[in-house]
Structure formats: structure tokens, C-alpha cells
Design a protein around this nucleic acid. Structure first.
Lengths: 118, 118
DNA sequence: CGGTATCCGCCGGGATACTG
DNA sequence: CAGTATCCCGGCGGATACCG
């Protein structure tokens, strides 16, 4: 997969990336969709942890950091004691919500009884 | 995560599944989006392998089997020598294409320079 | 309160060889 | 031509303990 360093191979830079797959990668984390969904309203860290049942602090943090890197969410730190951090959607994140809604409609109609375990 | 068998725990069946996440899981395979995209037209196995550069027979087969289980694609076997198998989208699969298109638009606009490696 | 740091298990995907 | 059958590896996600 263009990972070789043989001479004559296509340089990695030239491999064309599919924007659809790139988009999929942005939301590919196990909890990211739920997180984005709840971030339609600004939320604090602990609030998110309550809203996403079963997630640990460590994992929630890593998912949030990745979403932040991909510029889906903003992270606002209030310098006070006790600490307070607020997360919200960026413009890109907001524009993604309609897609989530369409995925939800499709899912209710078609992905109800899926067999593949994942 | 509701995997325990402790008494008093919520039975797995009652755990509410998010239809958006379920939808995400359907297309979560590394090559599935590309495969679905090319299957807008009916394709043969070897054709798909040429259209999805870098995928092996084994992996292509597994991705196709999963898509089939999730009822995104049809698999039609022609009983002849040499073998011939045609893949096509189901109705559910066809209805998913518009979502892929919207993901593509979003991706071209926002996911161009992502930092997260995946 | 909102995080890090560390360790670890699982499984999705890759390589390769073989087949009806 | 269109697949199986194996073996293997990296990395995501989970558990737990500690921190400013």
C-alpha cells in the first residue's frame, strides 16, 4: 500500500486520499458520534462523562483531543479553582450535525437488525 | 459496559443502541466506503480489486462479506467456468449513497488537512 | 474537577500459500 | 476467477493509579 521504499514506487504524498474516507476517519472513534451529538450544546467535561455512559476519563480525554485536532470541537479552559473546561462544536462540527441526522434516519430504517458484530 | 452478568445489571438487550453509531459501524471497515462507492454500478470481484488499489483478495472478501451481512450489497454467483460473481447495492445501499456524497462535500471543505493519523 | 501515565488485551487488517 | 486457510502485528480502547 505505497508503504514500500522500493525505487520506482509511487511516493506516499501522491496517493490520492478519498475525502469521504477522511470524513469517516474523523468520526471513527468508538464514542465520537455520541460526543459530537451531545456537543450540539456546550458541555463541561464531567457533564460529557455523565452523558456518555460507560466511558472513562482517560478515553473521553483521548477522544476529545482527537476531535480537537481534527477541528471538530473547541476546548475552552477557565482559569479558576476548581477547574472548569467547556467543549463546543466548531463551525465544521456544526456543519456535520445534519449528516449525523441523516445517518440516524438511515440507521433507524436499515441498520436495526445488523448481524456484523462491532 | 453492560457486559457483566451480575444480578441487578441491565440486560444487554435493553441497552439502547444509537442508530447513528450503528450506521457508522456499517461503513467502518477500512475499504468499505470505496467499495460502496464503486458499487454504484454492478461490479465483478476482480473488477473491484482493480478499482480498490492495494487491497488483497482476502481482505476484499472479508469486507464484502460484512457488507453483505449488513445488507448493503447483493452477491450474485453465476454457476459457470470460470467462476463469475457480481456485486451490487441493495436498496439500503443505494439509499446510503447520498450520505456518502454529503460526507464527501463536507470532507473536501473541512477534512483536507487533518492531523489525527488513522 | 479535569485531567496524565502506564500497562495490557483484543481484533481488524495485512502477507502468503493453497483451492474448486 | 474468486475465493479459503493461517499466521502475524500494530494500535485502539479499557483499567487503574496518580496529579495540579
Amino acid at each position: 500500500m505505497a508503504r514500500s521504499s522500493f525505487e520506482g514506487e509511487v511516493p506516499v504524498e501522491q496517493v490520492e486520499v478519498c475525502p469521504v474516507t477522511e470524513t469517516q476517519n474523523v468520526i471513527a472513534g468508538k464514542w465520537k458520534i455520541l460526543i459530537l451529538w451531545h456537543l450540539r450544546e456546550t458541555r463541561r467535561f464531567g457533564e460529557l462523562q455523565r452523558l456518555v455512559p460507560g466511558i472513562s476519563k482517560a478515553i473521553l480525554t483521548s477522544q476529545l483531543r482527537e476531535l480537537e485536532k481534527d477541528q471538530m470541537i473547541n476546548r475552552k479552559v477557565y482559569q479558576e479553582v476548581p477547574p472548569k473546561v467547556e467543549y463546543s462544536l466548531t463551525e465544521a462540527g456544526k456543519e456535520f450535525i445534519p449528516i449525523l441526522e441523516r445517518m440516524g434516519e438511515w440507521g433507524k430504517k436499515h441498520a436495526v437488525n445488523r448481524k456484523t458484530v462491532r
